[in-house]
Design a protein around this nucleic acid. Structure first.
Lengths: 152, 152
DNA sequence: GATCATGTACTATTTGAAGTTACATGAAGC
DNA sequence: GCTTCATGTAACTTCAAATAGTACATGATC
């Protein structure tokens, strides 16, 4: 099962943006994430629709965070990505006629549902400000050169 | 993201086996799961190695459950499948040098770890006997013809 | 109007499960 | 002992979903 790393990636990008004053271009962000600018724009498009970030064209354009960091939770970002599936496992048949399969689905479904709920609740508790604070704490503990901050 | 349905599938098969007296062939199980006999054998091979099921060749051969139903938990079966990944999301980089990414991984990692723990704990609490009992309760509530029991 | 940056449609690549084919191994029945 | 039935397993193909990448349009600034 291939794991979706968009949430991880977009958080990386947002924290890098938070360290910059002005707008940051897709190209710079792509370089920091070791990917393609189009991939960045595609992911960021969802965040823009939810009002989490802004984009501007032309000279001096790029991406900026639209709200205070403590006003954005991981849940907001997850939702802006379209709420991708959290679990790697699922039912073989979604609405089976077979009673055996219904019993299986019921048992697994409860576990799956609760695990998803746990994850979403956690996401809702964590803000970008907390992540940023954690980052700065790590910076203080082990300062790095500028290059390693821009990308590691 | 494509979801892994092997756990769901193998549970379906095991409960069908539990309803039969003698051994059941891969071909019959495959028909019930609407798949290929080789796929069944592949999945069952893992369970056999863990001593959950037995297989016999030749006339009258096939698969049988090797332990009492209340002695097999979903966790046992999950492990026998090789412990496939439970979550559809993961870190972009597993051991990043970038402090930003370290902060991101730390926050997400805690949530992921706890969600996986919850799922595994649930799996450990549920036995095949419980699923079988649930199935029979559904049977009583809405009896079906033989054909619909063999497969739905 | 030249340049820079986003917006997006379209295509290619990748990845892992699932499905399939083919054949070897071994057990029961005659 | 030979036929039949069933598993064991390797190798290959198919399939679906996501990411990556290309090409070009749109719009803003200099």
């Amino acid at each position: 099962m291939k794991r979706d790393s968009r949430l991880s990636g977009v958080l990386h990008v947002l924290l890098h943006m938070a360290e910059q004053d002005g707008p940051v271009t897709s190209e710079v962000l792509a370089k920091a994430m070791d990917t393609n600018p189009v991939v960045v724009r595609r992911v960021m498009a969802g965040l823009r629709e939810q009002g989490l970030v802004r984009s501007e064209k032309g000279h001096g354009g790029g991406w900026t965070i639209a709200r205070p960091l403590d006003g954005i939770t991981l849940r907001d970002i997850y939702d802006a990505l379209g709420g991708p599936s959290l679990l790697a496992m699922g039912h073989r048949t979604e609405a089976p006629g077979c009673l055996v399969e219904q019993a299986v689905n019921a048992a697994l479904g409860r576990a799956f549902h609760d695990a998803e709920g746990l994850l979403l609740a956690r996401f809702g508790e964590v803000t970008l400000a907390m992540l940023s604070a954690d980052f700065h704490a790590r910076m203080t503990a082990r300062p790095l050169g500028r290059k390693e901050i821009d990308h590691g």
